[in-house]
Design a protein around this nucleic acid. Sequence first.
DNA 1: TACATATGCAACTATTTGGTTGCATAATAC
DNA 2: GTATTATGCAACCAAATAGTTGCATATGTA
Lengths: 117, 117
Amino acid sequence: MDDVFKALADPTRRELLDRLHDQGGQTLNQLCSGLDVTRQGVSKHLLQLEQAHLVVTLWRGREKRHYLNPVPIYEIATRWINKFERGRLDGLQSLKNDLEDCSDDSDSTKSTNSSLT
Amino acid sequence: MDDVFKALADPTRRELLDRLHDQGGQTLNQLCSGLDVTRQGVSKHLLQLEQAHLVVTLWRGREKRHYLNPVPIYEIATRWINKFERGRLDGLQSLKNDLEDCSDDSDSTKSTNSSLT
DNA sequence: TACATATGCAACTATTTGGTTGCATAATAC
DNA sequence: GTATTATGCAACCAAATAGTTGCATATGTA
């Protein structure tokens, strides 16, 4: 489980998960495009995602297809969110806003939905 | 959002979240007991959890009470899990087991539910 | 007041981590 | 067979991180 949290702690790896969530089965070279990291850099990130079981792979000839596995993320949610809380949170955008507003944060200007990195 | 993932990436901080999920309103010194880290170490961890909005605090005299905030964790789940997938996953322990079984992991003996760290 | 309790801040260190370059291996195309 | 494409492995480096020690501040209590 430690591998899952470590894997999610990097913005490049989260970007890769976003792309695989958008379209599964992409290869390493496909996933490299647009990222300002070398191919080997991306390769190492994908390896970490694999070891965390967040990404499952399938060899097709010389190509390695990558797919997102949502199970570990689901386990994170169920760890700290009770069933009844999940029910409440599902509809309560207001609660989120309330917690944001009353926080003594330095820059309370930024909205919550802006720029997931 | 980056702060949330970084905060969750450390086992000590996850242990703190577990304790606050178990009982809210604990102080720094209460949370120190049992952890093999100094008070200042725990303090720095709690500060990171605060900045990630995973923990909300409330001053009571000279005591600082700590409470868990589940909202950021809920947002993680909704990022990579589609609504229909959430519905399926809710009842499908079997899917999780299947994915574990067919994984090419070195030590496939360990069960999924054992020892969240 | 004097003392104990509860927390915060700053400097320093060892380890981890993200990224690189260079070379090796394997499958497809000509 | 030769060239090209797709990926993997190892060594190296700079930056971030977890942890420490020491001191400062503020709130209760005798």
